[in-house]
């Protein structure tokens, strides 16, 4: 059930990224819904769920950018795996915690990706990273957990139960 739910969500996110997301761009920056979904898959489905959903989204994204097909698979799988093993001491149901987690993992993902794309050239990687990673992390870390929190509150009558 978990995988069916998240595979469906994956296609919804792909459609959203192609249609709605460009319209809500702030200063040219848009939320990374795919990565956020991988984080939620990791939180809800554990290491295996997060990794496999990361693998699926990595394959889908990579198919649109064949040069980095393997890289997307690796990085997004790692993001899902990492999301599943965040510290047990933090309240992962809290939207702020989720926002911070998404932002940190996105920054990590973008850092690795930018370094790989630029052939580990810091001179090219740093400006590229600065131009998008912090802004995207901020927007994604704020918008997505807020939207998820509201959705769960309105449609599920409370913060619990959405991904259980």
């Amino acid at each position: 059930m978990f995988f069916l739910q998240y595979i469906f969500l994956t296609f919804v996110v792909m459609l959203f990224e192609a249609t709605v997301v460009p319209r809500i761009a702030i200063l040219g920056l848009t939320p990374d819904l795919g990565l956020a979904l991988v984080v939620y898959a990791g939180l809800a489905g554990g290491g295996r769920g997060g990794t496999l959903i990361g693998l699926l989204i990595g394959l889908l994204r990579g198919s649109l950018e064949p040069e980095w097909l393997g890289l997307d698979v690796l990085l997004l799988s790692a993001v899902g795996f990492a999301a599943a093993y965040t510290s047990p001491k933090v309240d992962r149901d809290h939207p702020v915690v989720q926002g911070i987690l998404i932002a940190l993992l996105l920054l990590g993902h973008d850092t690795a990706r930018v370094l790989a794309i630029t052939g580990f050239s810091l001179a090219r990687a740093i400006p590229l990273w600065l131009s998008s990673a912090p802004g995207t992390a901020l927007i994604t870390g704020i918008l997505v957990p807020t939207a998820v929190h509201l959705w769960r509150k309105i449609y599920l009558g409370g913060p619990r139960g959405a991904f259980s």
Binding site: L43, A44, G45, G46, G47, R48, T51, L52, G54, L55, G58, L59, G70, L71, V73, L74, S77, A78, F81, A84, Y85, T86, S87, P88, R92, D93, R160, G161, F163, S164
Partner: peptide
């Protein structure tokens, strides 16, 4: 409610990660 974070990944989790790395 999200799953309680496990301290260590299980065999299945490592297997999934290994598969993802292998595909990559």
């Amino acid at each position: 409610m999200f799953r309680k974070a496990a301290a260590y990944p299980g065999f299945g989790d490592w297997l999934a990660l290994a598969a993802a790395i292998a595909v990559s």
